[in-house]
Design a protein around this nucleic acid. Structure first.
Length: 316
DNA sequence: AACCGTCACAACCGCATGCGA
DNA sequence: CTCGCATGCGGTTGTGACGGT
């Protein structure tokens, strides 16, 4: 049997993804889902093969990924499981929520393999030695604001309140409460590249499992009034804060009660949202969907309400 | 300043697997 | 059962940042 090539080599881009490509992929997948990876790049306006798109999404762009340093527990888990299972990275990754098989594989080859081979050295000792090395080479691959995690809890208005305001109901502006908060705190260091004028709403089209799978210890359910709480998740304490102290921010699922708030750590967005220009957030992403079977692309009610003319064109 | 080696991580490639027709 | 396709998996390579010489 002859396989058709997974990539048509002609005219397809390879190599590092640009922020523009990322924004197209995020916008497309979050709005329409990954109904067919091979066809997707054509409709999303990407000169990439489907495989490349899938990999980029799975390993880097999808929202429930953890970025940054591994915890001691994670490293020990990887070493232990690798002893048991060998190079079954996907199985190992399944035990570490938010980590991808690719990331774990890379971390193994660059760091943990050596640690594992030096059986006389404990994981903790090896980490201490590594951090010493890092201190001596300050600046390299450094990630600012690591260590102390501050969370922001925003309580959304009640459903009835939102239904009185059609703009707030729309998936493309449902973060209106949040966006006003963001602008209030636009000086916060971690938000310097972010423009949340109105359009965080595309996140609404993540399916429910994305939100429920988020490993968030600090999901808060507050009274229906706007409240900002900063908490140091390292010591579990929580305290009021002013805007300059805020380093994290939140999003929320439209499938949840709007009186619930979902607190998301900086790492959640930091890895994939902060590279995009303002127009990504303020302009709806449009693409030619005319070749896509219509049954695969049923918009949400709210979204079709928001862009009736667009959906009229696309679905007649 | 230029070159080279190392490191971490992103991305690619080929093959395996699952599934529907 | 076979075929063809889409996706998943693991090995490998490419790339960029950094430090040392």
């Amino acid at each position: 049997m002859v396989r058709t090539p997974s990539c048509d080599k002609s005219g397809l881009r390879k190599g590092t993804w640009t922020p523009e490509e990322d924004s197209k992929l995020i916008a497309y997948v979050t709005r329409y889902g990954c109904w067919n990876w091979r066809q997707l790049p054509r409709f999303a306006g990407l000169a990439r093969c489907g495989k490349s798109c899938r990999l980029r999404w799975m390993n880097y762009l999808r929202p429930n990924l953890k970025r940054g340093n591994y915890t001691l527990e994670e490293e020990e888990c990887i070493i232990r499981m690798h002893k048991q299972l060998g190079n079954r990275w996907s199985v190992i990754a399944a035990e570490l929520p938010g980590r991808t098989d690719n990331e774990i594989k890379n971390h193994w080859h660059t760091t943990l393999k050596k640690m594992s081979q030096q059986n006389t050295v404990t994981t903790e000792e090896a980490r201490a030695s590594r951090s010493k090395d890092k201190e001596s080479s300050l600046g390299r691959d450094s990630v600012p604001n690591k260590g102390v995690t501050v969370t922001v809890t925003v309580t959304l208005p009640s459903t009835s309140h939102m239904s009185d305001n059609s703009d707030s109901l729309s998936p493309l502006s449902s973060s209106s409460e949040f966006s006003s908060l963001s602008s209030d705190h636009s000086n916060a260091a971690s938000m310097e590249n972010l423009m949340f004028e109105d359009d965080l709403g595309f996140l609404d089209s993540f399916n429910e499992s994305v939100w429920t799978e988020l490993n968030l210890d600090d999901i808060s359910y507050n009274a229906p009034s706007c409240e900002i709480v900063a908490g140091d998740t390292n010591n579990g304490s929580s305290q009021s804060t002013n805007s300059s102290q805020i380093q994290d921010f939140c999003a929320f699922s439209p499938h949840q009660s709007t009186s619930e708030s979902l607190v998301v750590g900086k790492d959640f967005f930091g890895g994939f949202l902060d590279a995009y220009a303002e127009n990504f957030w303020t302009q709806p992403y449009l693409t030619d969907m005319s070749h896509v079977p219509s049954e695969l692309l049923v918009p949400s009610v709210a979204e079709s309400d928001y862009f009736p003319s667009i959906y009229d064109d696309l679905w007649g």
